[in-house]
Computed example of a mutant assay.
Amino acid sequence: MKELEALVKAYYPKMKTGSEVTETYLDFLKNEYNSDLSKMLFATSLCCDDINVSTDFRRVLTRPFSMGGLGGLPFSGFTGMVAYAHHIPDGGDAFIFYGPHIGMTDEGKLGKMRRPGQKQLTNSCGALMLALQRLQQENEVYVPINSELDYQQTLLERTVMPYKHRILTSANPEKEITDVAYEEIHKKLNMLIRMSRKEFRCDRIFLLGGVIVNTSPEYEDAVEVRNFEIVDTNELDDAVPSFSILESEAFKNL
């Protein structure tokens, strides 16, 4: 494990194991911030990939609200954030864990991993590595085409497209596109929270963001935490959405 840890730290020097991150931040929430965990509503904006179980917040924080889709982008959007805001227990807090994931082989190669029950390597994050492959094609300029049957992948690719030069000229494009995904998830979540500010039935939103590093099944996955903050819903600036549903009864009762 120590050899693999050194390989992970070469790319993610602040990494901790998933269990370490879980215990550290549950302790913070309970003992440093006096949060009643039984009244806390947990949400995630993580990739829908089945491999993303590195942290164990759900052991303590039940009924997680899932915002994320391919790549970890908060595809539940404004409606999803408002619904989450409305579901927080009386007198409770909000806690959102978010970020992309990336695989690592036993030899330290990023972007691939050996999954449980499989011998061959597969991509992780598969959606981000597919987007990277499409950005790298040289025979033509790739333009994501809308498809209602694959809209999450299309939107993910459109999201990373403005960073094409940054990604392709980096020393490690697999890591770079994952870093871009983290930045976009972070930015979009903060915008959605501001848009939904008046809908939150709590004073505090705890945000924990980072990159999950998936390793082989016999090792524990890692997390490099990149953000931990407390958002005071009473002090947020408004970002007013231009949506006609705001005054509807269905919206008020999401």
Rank of each mutant, 00 (worst) to 15 (best):
Y84V: 14
F200G: 10
S244R: 10
G71R: 05
G209I: 02
V53P: 02
D232W: 01
P64K: 00
Y11T: 03
C202G: 09
P74T: 08
E224G: 00
E20L: 07
L207D: 14
K16P: 03
R59K: 14
L128V: 05
S54M: 12
E20V: 06
G126S: 02
V143K: 10
K164Q: 09
A83W: 03
N31Q: 08
A181Q: 02
P162S: 00
K119Q: 11
E176I: 02
A181Y: 08
I51Y: 06
L156G: 02
Q153T: 13
L46T: 13
Q133H: 02
L4Y: 13
F57T: 00
A250E: 15
R166S: 06
K16E: 07
N234C: 08
S76W: 06
N123D: 10
K16L: 12
E138S: 12
F206A: 07
D50C: 11
R134A: 01
G77S: 08
T215P: 15
H165N: 12
E23M: 08
P100Y: 09
L4Q: 12
V231R: 04
V53L: 07
Q136A: 00
I212M: 13
N34L: 10
N31A: 06
E107Q: 13
L110K: 03
D232R: 06
H87I: 11
S124Y: 06
G117N: 01
K39W: 00
G71F: 12
P89G: 09
L254V: 12
H165Y: 15
N52L: 13
T17F: 03
G72H: 08
L132G: 00
S76Y: 04
Q118L: 14
N139G: 09
M67L: 09
H186P: 11
Q153Y: 06
F78R: 04
K187C: 10
K109C: 04
E5M: 15
L7W: 13
A85K: 06
Q137K: 08
P100V: 03
Y25I: 03
L7K: 14
P162A: 01
N227M: 12
E176Q: 12
E176F: 09
T79Y: 13
G80S: 05
S38F: 00
Q136D: 02
D50Y: 10
I193W: 05
Y25G: 02
A171Y: 08
V21A: 04
E140L: 04
S170E: 05
M1A: 13
D93K: 05
Y25C: 05
K252E: 08
M161T: 08
F97E: 04
I102G: 04
M67D: 04
N31E: 05
K198T: 15
P100N: 04
V211Q: 13
L130I: 14
R166G: 02
P173Q: 03
L46N: 09
K119R: 12
A131E: 00
E220Y: 07
I205K: 04
D106A: 15
E148G: 14
I145E: 11
R115A: 15
E224H: 07
E3M: 13
I88W: 01
A83E: 13
G103S: 03
S66F: 11
R59C: 04
E235Q: 14
M129S: 00
V180H: 01
F75W: 07
